[in-house]
Design a binder for these strands. Structure first.
Lengths: 158, 158
DNA sequence: GTCACTGCAAAAGGTTTGCAACGGA
DNA sequence: TCCGTTGCAAACCTTTTGCAGTGAC
């Protein structure tokens, strides 16, 4: 039943590949590649931790030619809906976005530095089957996110 | 290694027990039991789906003697921090609260009617160990939520 | 009587919207 | 040229805050 028995770790985001992926996705969908949009995605790949919409806008404002607030929000929405941006739920409630490739992924978040790693294959089949049997629910989806300390942050103080 | 091999399903929320639990928790912590707070928790147990702060305030306003907005928000914060209210992440991004008993729980949300069931014991030890080994992270916590259709909603149209 | 709690009203913060001008394809 | 995109500014919605009065214990 489970064809995917091992969790497969994703390599850290290749920013060049991500930028290219977004550009060609835009092209394929007939969306226009404009200066403001490019500035948005270039700033996104510069982050090493989840970011918020307002933070992205503020950072863009610190440079010349910042896009308007509306453009930033609209571009984020687009990327999120097409799967190029994942929503991250912080361990303490904050929300943020992280660049990723479209597909079913889970995230592992460092609670110290914010670094995020992705993995797919979560082996929940057994649990889901049991829950379904016990509750009568038909389980259709799930949200799984892990929190911890990355290798670099394990030996540092809080 | 895994001492907890079966997921244990929680019975549906016993509203009387929840109300009593909250009251005695307040008492134990030296918090005062006031009219406005009681009106808040009584409205909370009347819900059958996750609710937002503003929705709770609005519903309270529809009756006499509604607490002020600040009181509603402050009471929600308190209940959330002490574990009597769980944050629910909707399948499509909306956030909400659901009454629950303090402890480590996961939630199963009906995407049609919003009904929420809780369970504990998620058997993730193996997955967590593998991820830890592959990434060098020390995994310290996780967020797991399931989405599906409850027994009542399975045979109804979208 | 004391001190935590409350309500109000204002401020703060984040996000969305309408619309005229702009500019990729 | 055409139509999607942009920027602006205002509107909107949710949440937070300060403070004087109130009320639980």
């Amino acid at each position: 039943m489970a064809t995917n028995t091992a969790a497969s770790l994703q390599p850290p985001l290749d920013t060049q590949a991500w930028l290219n992926g977004v550009r060609s996705a835009w092209q394929r969908s007939g969306l226009r590649i404009t200066g403001p949009r490019l500035r948005v995605i270039e700033t996104i790949v510069s982050y090493h931790a989840p970011f918020s919409a307002e933070q992205l806008y503020t950072d863009l404002c610190a440079h010349n030619e910042a896009p308007g607030r509306a453009t930033v929000y609209r571009t984020i929405d687009q990327l999120h809906e097409s799967g190029w941006l994942a929503r991250i739920h912080g361990a303490t409630g904050e929300e943020g976005y992280v660049p990723c490739h479209p597909g079913h992924l889970h995230h592992l978040v460092c609670t110290k530095c914010g670094q995020v790693m992705s993995f797919e294959g979560c082996n929940l089949e057994e649990l889901l089957a049991r829950i379904a049997a016990e509750t009568g629910f038909s389980v259709e989806g799930h949200l799984l996110q892990l929190f911890g300390r990355c290798a670099n942050c394990q030996n540092t103080l809080p």
